[in-house]
């Protein structure tokens, strides 16, 4: 089991206990601070590039080709994983798994900590996970692991992630990839 998480970032497993809310439009949330999107993007890229076993968790909204935007995002997320030197583990559905999940190949919102413990993941990005399940999973990860979580959300963001950027559509992902490339160069990775 990894070290417990909240001590690193917050004493509570639920961010709203700390008075943390989702960021306003055009802004991002970095731990407890509201910041400009670019600041959050740079920090997410830095954490992903410098943490052990950085992993992207794509959810059903980007895994399946259900509309044109999802197809565009899939290409960009693949590129993002290459730029960040990150692994990808899918959250392909939300069904509970019996007798247990295979933590090497999937993450499940009902016990996401198992995947993070098993793979010793120290930083991750949630993307394309439906908000209600992202909220559940991020709370469990926050309470049970020391993983730095980032949420790239197409809607209003997730206060339980360490970093969250909201209203992220394909053009915003392209911008993030560009920022990540710059950070990577600065870090000499």
């Amino acid at each position: 089991m990894a070290n417990l998480g909240p001590a690193d970032y917050s004493p509570y497993p639920v961010a709203t206990y700390d008075g943390i809310l989702t960021p306003p439009e055009g802004k991002a949330l970095l731990l407890t601070d509201i910041v400009d999107e670019e600041v959050a993007m740079r920090e997410i890229a830095r954490v992903m590039l410098t943490s052990e076993n950085a992993t992207i968790f794509p959810g059903p909204q980007v895994l399946y080709a259900w509309n044109e935007e999802a197809k565009k995002k899939a290409t960009l997320i693949k590129e993002m994983a290459e730029v960040l030197n990150a692994k990808m583990i899918p959250m392909y559905d939300y069904r509970p798994k019996y007798p247990k999940i295979d933590a090497e190949v999937e993450i499940n919102p009902n016990h996401p900590n198992l995947t993070i413990w098993h793979n010793n993941i120290k930083a991750c990005i949630f993307i394309g996970v439906h908000c209600h399940y992202a909220n559940v999973a991020l709370k469990i990860v926050r309470a049970e692991t020391d993983c730095y979580t980032s949420a790239m959300c197409a809607l209003s963001g997730h206060e339980d992630a360490m970093a969250t950027i909201r209203d992220q559509h394909s053009e915003d992902l392209a911008r993030f990839i560009q920022v990540a490339r710059e950070v990577k160069q600065e870090l000499g990775k």
Binding site: P58, Y64, A65, W66, A70, K71, A74, T75, V105
Partner: peptide, 14 residues
């Protein structure tokens, strides 16, 4: 279509 996997992710799907 909601069950069609984006080709970029076929290699990571079970």
């Amino acid at each position: 279509d909601i069950y069609k996997i984006n080709p970029e992710f076929r290699d990571i799907m079970p």
